[in-house]
Simulated assay, not measured.
Amino acid sequence: MKRYGSVIGLSEDGKAEYRKLHAAVWPGVLAKIADCNIRNYSIFLKEPENLMFSYFEYHGTDFAADMARMAADPETQRWWAINMPLQSPLETRKEGEWWADMTEIFHVD
């Protein structure tokens, strides 16, 4: 199992819609997340800065393949098309990132 954390901004105008969407995530999207070996997935919002922190645990053996499979899923693509315009990616993110990856520097069970 590997832990992942990432960060992104959330537009002030889109905040209410984003909260509404995530209060009732589509069942097909939730199923695809589980199918792609993601567990213990959370998104936190820090206000008033409107920064979101995402955390999940990956329980598979081929992260790149699972993420490609998720990205190819039509329902997930529709979900992202609605949510992505509400987000504000960090200018400091690496090329190819939407949510900026974070490095874990501490963990205790």
Rank of each mutant, 00 (worst) to 15 (best):
A71M: 11
E49G: 12
W79P: 01
W80D: 09
I38L: 12
M52F: 05
A65M: 09
V29K: 07
E49A: 14
N50W: 00
K46H: 10
K20V: 05
A72Q: 10
L30W: 07
E75L: 13
W79G: 01
N37C: 10
R78L: 05
S54Y: 03
K32P: 00
I43Y: 00
R39M: 04
D35Y: 11
K46D: 09
V29D: 01
I82W: 03
P27C: 04
P27V: 03
I33D: 00
N37I: 06
A31L: 12
Y58F: 06
F56D: 00
R39Y: 03
I33C: 02
A24D: 14
K20N: 10
W80N: 14
D62M: 11
E75A: 07
T61Q: 15
R39V: 12
A23F: 04
Y55G: 00
A65I: 08
V25R: 06
D62Q: 13
D66R: 09
T61M: 10
H59L: 15
E47H: 03
H59T: 15
F63Q: 05
L51D: 08
E57L: 10
S42K: 13
A71Q: 14
A65S: 12
W79I: 05
L30N: 13
H22P: 07
D35E: 15
R39H: 05
V29C: 00
I38E: 08
H22W: 06
A81H: 11
D66Y: 08
A65P: 10
I82T: 13
D62V: 11
W80S: 11
K46F: 14
N83Q: 12
A81T: 11
I82C: 05
F63Y: 14
D73C: 07
P27R: 09
F44K: 03
K32F: 02
M52L: 14
D35S: 13
T61E: 15
Q77H: 10
P27L: 05
A31I: 11
L51N: 10
K20P: 04
Y41L: 04
F63I: 11
F44D: 01
R78P: 02
N50M: 06
D73Y: 07
T76P: 02
N83H: 04
I82P: 01
V25I: 15
W26Q: 13
A31V: 11
F53D: 02
L30K: 15
K46I: 12
N37L: 06
N37S: 12
W26C: 02
P27K: 09
G28N: 09
A81E: 13
Q77P: 09
Y55H: 09
G60H: 09
Y58S: 01
N37Q: 12
R39C: 03
I38H: 10
D66V: 08
E49T: 14
R78F: 00
S54W: 03
V25E: 07
M52G: 02
E49M: 11
T61Y: 08
M67V: 12
G28I: 06
S42W: 10
L51H: 11
A72L: 05
W80P: 05
W80Y: 13
S42P: 03
D66L: 05
P27H: 07
N37E: 08
G28S: 06
D62G: 12
E75D: 12
K32N: 03
Y55C: 01
I43R: 01
I43C: 00
D73H: 12
S54V: 06
Y41S: 01
A81Q: 15
A72C: 06
Y58P: 04
K20M: 09
E47I: 05
I33G: 01
P48F: 01
A24C: 10
V25Q: 08
V29T: 04
V25W: 04
